[in-house]
Simulated scan of single mutants.
Amino acid sequence: MLVRIVKMGFYRQNVDVFLESFENNKTKIRNSNGCTFLELYRDKNNPTILFTYSYWESDAQLQEYRQSKDFKTLWKTLKPLFSIRPEAWSFDKLETLD
């Protein structure tokens, strides 16, 4: 399993635009082939910094999503909203404790 974390910083006036876009697209993202989990977080000290946290069955399925028309359309819409360059990390999930 692959865990993907993406950090995004937005201009203050664009945060609500992003949140609306996420609301409109979250089900489509979550239902993408290989995506098994999706969450959205907001930094406690800086409300213009948000993170997506997702699980993918494989890197190949994440890359398939990133090459999809849906992703490319969404990313083109979001790009002008960013105040900082987005950062992304991919991890192999090793263990979960409940």
Rank of each mutant, 00 (worst) to 15 (best):
L78A: 06
Q67I: 00
Q63W: 00
Y41D: 12
N46D: 13
F71V: 02
S32M: 07
T36R: 15
W75D: 06
L78P: 05
K72E: 06
R66F: 06
D59I: 05
T36F: 11
Y41L: 15
T73P: 01
K69W: 00
I29M: 11
D59T: 02
D59H: 06
D70V: 08
L40E: 12
C35E: 12
F82M: 02
L50T: 04
E64H: 04
Q63C: 00
K44I: 15
Q61Y: 11
L50A: 05
D59E: 13
Y41F: 15
T73N: 13
L40Q: 11
K69M: 00
I29P: 08
F51K: 00
A60N: 11
N24H: 09
Y55P: 13
K69G: 00
L81M: 14
E57S: 12
T48I: 03
W75C: 00
P80L: 03
W56V: 09
K72W: 01
F82I: 07
F71S: 02
Q61N: 08
D43V: 08
K79V: 05
R66P: 00
L40C: 13
L50R: 06
E64L: 10
I29V: 14
K72V: 01
D59Q: 07
E64W: 01
F37G: 04
T48E: 05
K26L: 01
R30T: 05
L62A: 13
T77C: 03
F71P: 02
T73G: 04
T27V: 01
S54A: 10
K76E: 12
D59V: 04
L50C: 10
E57T: 14
D59C: 00
D59N: 10
K26G: 03
L81N: 09
L78T: 03
P80Y: 04
L74T: 07
E57I: 10
S68W: 11
I29F: 07
D59R: 09
L50I: 07
T52L: 05
E39Y: 07
N46W: 03
G34Q: 14
E39W: 04
T52F: 12
S68Y: 12
S32I: 01
Q63Y: 01
E39V: 08
D43T: 02
K79T: 03
N25H: 11
N45G: 11
Q67K: 06
F51P: 01
W56S: 08
D59L: 12
L74A: 13
K26E: 07
K26P: 03
T77W: 02
Y41R: 14
T27W: 01
Y55F: 15
L62D: 06
Y41S: 14
E39T: 12
T36Q: 10
E64F: 03
D59M: 07
L40W: 10
Y41V: 14
I29L: 12
N31I: 02
F82E: 05
I49G: 01
T36P: 09
F37H: 13
N45D: 09
K79L: 09
S32P: 04
R66H: 03
W75Q: 07
S32L: 04
Y53N: 12
T36E: 15
K26C: 12
I29D: 05
L81Q: 13
W56N: 13
Y53A: 00
A60V: 13
N24C: 07
N46F: 04
I29N: 04
R42L: 08
T52W: 02
Y53K: 05
T27I: 05
N25I: 01
T36V: 14
L38Q: 09
S68P: 04
